[in-house]
């Protein structure tokens, strides 16, 4: 578990995630072209299977790693006796809050090998962003999130995301706003508790 400066993105992992499958696919194509120019099983494996595996990796690999990291996070929190009943799973980040011990735990999609457990006193502010935009009948939102700052790093956790714009009084949006408001309150409460300790 890390307690140092929060890094939302591990750039080595991000570049490896993008470039390694691309390099393997290119290598596969080169081997297929060079050694199996006349076709056959080798050509199918290197010219087709390797690039398909690379594409599958780009589509599913990150989610699989993130899913494994989430399970590992829960196990580590249990081992450290950190209360994880207050936990929020988002698409890009998992936030867990132990109000009693005033600790906030975080795991990021693009940095899945680092689990941050920090004193809640390091959270400087928290707020809700309803993402409202547009005018008149087009006024609505496609994203609701809560944000907080830790050591000056802004962390956004989405509670509602859509590829369409929804009206602000839609049930899905209201639920997203409610979740965000609840988490802002929890973060503020833990922050104040952390400041007192």
């Amino acid at each position: 578990m890390k307690t140092d400066h929060v890094k939302k993105v591990n750039y080595v992992y991000l570049l490896a995630y993008i470039l390694v499958p691309a390099a393997l696919a290119a290598l596969g194509l080169w081997i297929g072209y060079t050694f199996y120019h006349d076709g056959g099983v080798g050509a199918v494996i290197f010219d087709m299977c390797v690039p398909i595996l690379a594409i599958l990796w780009w589509v599913f690999g990150g989610r699989i790693i993130y899913s494994i990291a989430k399970k590992r996070m829960l196990k580590k929190l249990d081992e450290a006796e950190i209360d994880r009943r207050q936990i929020f799973y988002s698409d890009g980040c998992v936030v867990s809050m132990d109000i009693r011990q005033a600790k906030v735990a975080m795991l990021f999609f693009w940095n899945p090998f680092a689990l941050y457990v920090l004193p809640a006193g390091r959270v400087t502010r928290a707020w809700t962003d309803d993402g409202a935009g547009g005018v008149g009948i087009l006024r609505g939102t496609s994203r609701v999130s809560f944000l907080f700052e830790v050591d000056g790093v802004k962390i956004r956790v989405n509670t509602f995301v859509s590829n369409q714009r929804w009206k602000l009084n839609d049930d899905k949006v209201l639920e997203g706003i409610s979740k965000a408001d609840l988490w802002v309150q929890v973060l503020e409460q833990a922050r104040q508790q952390g400041a007192e300790v």
Partner: peptide, 9 residues
Amino acid sequence: FLPVRDQEK
């Protein structure tokens, strides 16, 4: 209902 600011779900 779920109270959400000045609205309700």
